[in-house]
Computed example of a mutant assay.
Amino acid sequence: MAQNSRPKPEFPAWPQFGEEERTGLVRALEQGQWWRIGGSEVDTFEQEFGAYHGTPHALAVTNGTHALELALQVLGVGPGTEVIVPAFTFISSSQAAQRLGAVAVPVDIDPDTLNIDPASAANAITPRTAAIMPVHMAGQMCDMDALGKLSADSGVPLIQDAAHAHGAEWNGRKVGELGSVAAFSFQNGKLMTAGEGGLVTFVDAGQREEAFLRHSCGRPSTDRYYFHKTSGSNFRMNEFSASVLRAQLGRLAGQIDIRERNWPLLSGLLAGIDGVQPQTVDSRATRNPHYMAMFRVPGLAAERRNRLVDALIERGLPAFAAFRAIYRSDGFWETGAPRESVESIAARCPHTEAVHEDTVWLHHRTLLGTEEHMHQIAGIVSETLATL
C-alpha cells in the first residue's frame, strides 16, 4: 500500500460519556439547588475524588489554573516570594504564581522523563522561595523521593501540578498520600472532564478550610450576614459539573488500565523507529495514567517538528507540538518574571531548549484504542518522518 493511502485510524472519541453522566445531570437538576452551598453534588464529588486519591481534604474549584492559584495562596505565596517551576510545562503553572504577585523561577527538566530536575530545583532555592512546583508531565510522576527530601531539607513546601496525573501513583502511594498539596484540572482534554473544572487536595483540614473561605469570596458556608473572613474570589464549582465528574471518576480506573496496557507496546514500536525517543517511564511510578503519548525526535528543529505534527494530523493522528518553554512566551514576561534575560534562562535550561523544539505528543484517546491502533500509529509516524 502506498504510504499516503494507509487508512486513517479511527480512535475512541473524547470525552467519553453515557447514561451515568445523564443520570448525574438529571439528579443535579432535580435537587433544585444548582450551586454548591445548597446542593450535594460538589460535596459528594470532593469526598469521592479525595478517597480515590488518598486524602479526605479535597476542594473542587472552577478550573485547573484556579486550583493552582488557590493552592499557592494557601501555601503563603504572594508578593516578594518566588515559586520554582519547570521551564517545560503549560504556562498556567507559572501564571498561577505570577497572578499572586510572586516571581516564577523556571528550572530545567530531565530530558528522558520530561519532568522537573530536582538538582536544578535545589540550585534555584533562595530565601524568597515559597514553593516548588513539580509538574507530573503526561501522567509520569516526578521524582517524588528526591523532591520530598529537598522539601524536607529546605523547608520549602511542594505543590504538585497534577493536571495530567489523575489516578497516578508513586511507589504505590497515591497523589494525596505524598504529604504535599496537589492541584488537578478537568478541562475538556484531561483524563476526566466536565469541560472545565479543577480540584485541590490538601495535607490537612486547616489548609482545606482556608482554601474553602478563599474560593468562596472569604465567606464561610454557614454565614448568613455577609461576614467575609478572608480575601478571596469566586472559584466555586457548580453542581452540574460535579455530577458529570462523579460519573467520569467512575470511568477513570478502567481507562487507565487500557492506557497502561497499550503504552508499553506503542513505546516499544516508537523506540524502534530510527531517531525517535519515547518519554521514559520511571519504574517508581507504579501507576501512570498516560495523559499524553509523548515522544522526542532529538535534533529536530521546531520548524520541522511543526511540519511533522501537521502531517500526522493529516494522516489521522491527534498530534500536538510540545509546550513552548515558558520563558519563550510573551505572556511569561508581563508580570512576575525573574530579573534575567531569555538567553540567561535558556543557558541554564539546555534540556528544555531541546525538548520544546523536538517533542510531539498524541492525545490520550489514542491509547484507548486497540493493539492494531498502536501498530498503525507507529507506522504513520515512521512513514511521515521519512518524508520530512
Rank of each mutant, 00 (worst) to 15 (best):
258 I>F: 08
374 M>E: 01
112 D>Q: 14
47 Q>F: 09
197 G>W: 02
257 D>T: 08
299 G>K: 09
224 R>E: 12
95 Q>W: 12
124 A>Q: 00
364 H>P: 03
1 M>K: 14
88 F>A: 04
201 T>D: 03
170 W>A: 03
377 I>T: 08
60 A>Q: 01
346 A>F: 03
365 R>D: 13
379 G>T: 10
129 T>Q: 03
205 A>N: 08
26 V>R: 13
164 H>W: 13
9 P>N: 02
82 E>L: 00
153 D>I: 11
116 I>N: 03
3 Q>T: 15
184 F>D: 10
115 N>V: 06
28 A>D: 03
57 H>E: 06
7 P>H: 07
324 R>G: 10
95 Q>D: 11
303 E>L: 12
129 T>V: 05
146 A>V: 03
199 L>K: 06
270 L>W: 02
156 V>C: 01
16 Q>H: 07
79 P>N: 04
322 A>V: 02
84 I>L: 00
55 T>F: 00
7 P>L: 09
270 L>A: 02
277 Q>T: 14
294 M>L: 15
13 A>D: 14
69 E>D: 12
299 G>I: 04
17 F>N: 13
105 V>K: 05
167 G>P: 08
297 V>H: 10
248 Q>M: 07
250 G>N: 02
172 G>L: 07
257 D>R: 09
36 R>C: 11
298 P>C: 10
132 I>L: 01
240 F>V: 06
90 F>C: 14
284 R>S: 09
216 S>R: 12
278 P>C: 05
374 M>F: 00
